[in-house]
Nucleic acid binder design. Sequence first.
DNA 1: CGGTGATCATCG
DNA 2: CGATGATCACCG
Length: 225
Amino acid sequence: MQPPTNPPASLDDLMQRVVQIAGFTLGELASLADLKAPANLRRHKGWVGQLIELWLGAEAGSQQTQDFAQLGVELKTLPVDESGSPLETTYVCYAHLTGIAGLNWQQSNVRNKLSRVLWIPVQGSRDIPPALRVVGNGFLWQPNNDEEQALRSDWEEIMDFISLGQVEKLTARQGEVMQIRPKAADGRALTDAIGPDGSIIQTRPRGFYLKKSFTKAILQRQFNE
DNA sequence: CGGTGATCATCG
DNA sequence: CGATGATCACCG
């Protein structure tokens, strides 16, 4: 077994790849690809996601688009604890802080990314070395009406703050299922945003994240119903 | 710098 | 002890 060299031609093709890697450890998948698993993820935070991308044939470096654009699928690995609950929030996308006048939910990057997600649960407890973590059963998810409304409501509230120049008043506590948080290389990174008086200010770049309670509910809907 | 992949680590 | 705010690595 070895990683595919081409993107999946169809949804069935993609899901076959998903089934193939389920049950393997990250260390096994790494050595089959001539890679080495890091001892911990402190300096390799995106390693798990990139390994899974490799095994599913996702196009690398794709920007502001779904991982499998032609299939309309976004890939997300989800670190879970021993009881199957998410250990981390889930990054969705970068949040634009200027040039957002007239942008609505239907055309938003968030909605596009989340319209169809391939979730791959992976053991994520820190007491398990990355190489020994097992890949779970991946599944396709599309937001149901309730989920879409919740996402939309959070998105609109957050975007209202941003367009009204209140980005600095936004905190991760805002939002029921989705939040906005800093997303940058370090605290020195700055980007343009709308200030309180309507002029351009500099602020820390932000990204949208799904709260754990939301992804936990997605997993429960998939595996406990 | 803006974007991808995320997890880390401090603080309430 | 969990969530928020900060940070790590890589790419064009």
